[in-house]
Design a protein around this nucleic acid. Structure first.
Lengths: 162, 162
DNA sequence: TTAGCTGCAAAAGGTTTGCAAATTA
DNA sequence: TAATTTGCAAACCTTTTGCAGCTAA
């Protein structure tokens, strides 16, 4: 299925745009680039997309470095990961986190409001004493476009192995 | 974190227990074993657990065969996969599917009722015309046991990189 | 100066694939 | 018999790791 291509929305990273990030961590060029990539690329980007963007700005940056910085941003809480499909993990700004609806036919990702999750969280605390840290919700289905009669008649919905 | 060990609940597979599965597919020994494994092993089992169980009943069965059958059971809809943690995919009977709550400290999986998802589904249909096929919900947090004062004072909750 | 980062290359872990031989219908 | 399915082994893909050299503070 068509995964959005590597989306290298190359816009030269400007020093000024970089927020004052991660106290206690060194301010490196690589770190700044990864941070900018996540802000620039569409949400739910893969490590591969981030790497491509970063390498677009500076080809010397190693893939492993991107992974390390990504993991770091996750543990500092600035970025969260989601596993939307069979591919790699998807990263997004913690501030922009939200539930997703993934179309099984075209792979499109739709954002879902998270008002509904509140109730679930409260119920879990009350019934099993579970303290919720984060809710990971993915709705799998078929988006409006793919469900349109004109397109849906041919072929079975691709099985994304979700 | 402690993933439940391979849980090879070896009970000899009996021919009689095998349901009339997959019309149009050949009835092979391997297929029957995989199906039984999923029914026998605790829910959310990994491909590795299924393979271990199957090999316990017949060591000649290849891992790749298990993967192929698993993928097949998924596309036929008898089995669904969930991605609960950083490890491999988790398989479970479609009939037994339900939301999960995963403890980030001990890895325990708690089953959650799915009454709440109904509302979400309805709202998605109404607002963005999304036809929901399956909702994949994972709640990440801390279970009652791990949240107990006696244990929670030491160390930070392990970062599962979820 | 020095603790922390980075690049490189290789390893790891989970899953998929090519192909000839075995099997089911 | 003919079309699937399996075993084996190797390929793949994403992510992690070891280590020596580099660099921000």
């Amino acid at each position: 299925m068509p995964r959005n291509d590597l989306a290298v929305a190359s816009r030269a990273p400007t020093e000024a745009e970089v927020p004052h990030l991660d106290p206690g961590r060194r301010r490196t060029r690589q770190r700044r680039l990864v941070w900018q990539a996540i802000q620039t690329i569409e949400p739910h980007c893969t490590a591969e997309q981030v790497t491509a963007w970063v390498k677009g700005a500076d080809p010397r940056v190693a893939r492993s470095t991107v992974y390390r910085i990504l993991a770091d941003l996750c543990s500092s809480g600035d970025v969260v990961v989601a596993r939307l499909d069979a591919g790699g993990l998807r990263y997004e700004l913690a501030a922009a986190e939200h539930p997703h609806a993934v179309c099984q036919v075209c792979g499109k990702v739709i954002h879902v409001g998270d008002e509904l999750l509140q109730t679930l969280e409260e119920q879990l605390a009350a019934t099993v004493g579970f303290r919720t840290v984060r809710i990971d919700l993915t709705v799998n289905g078929v988006c409006r476009d793919c469900a349109a009669p004109s397109r849906r008649t041919t072929g079975r919905p691709q099985h994304n192995h979700i």
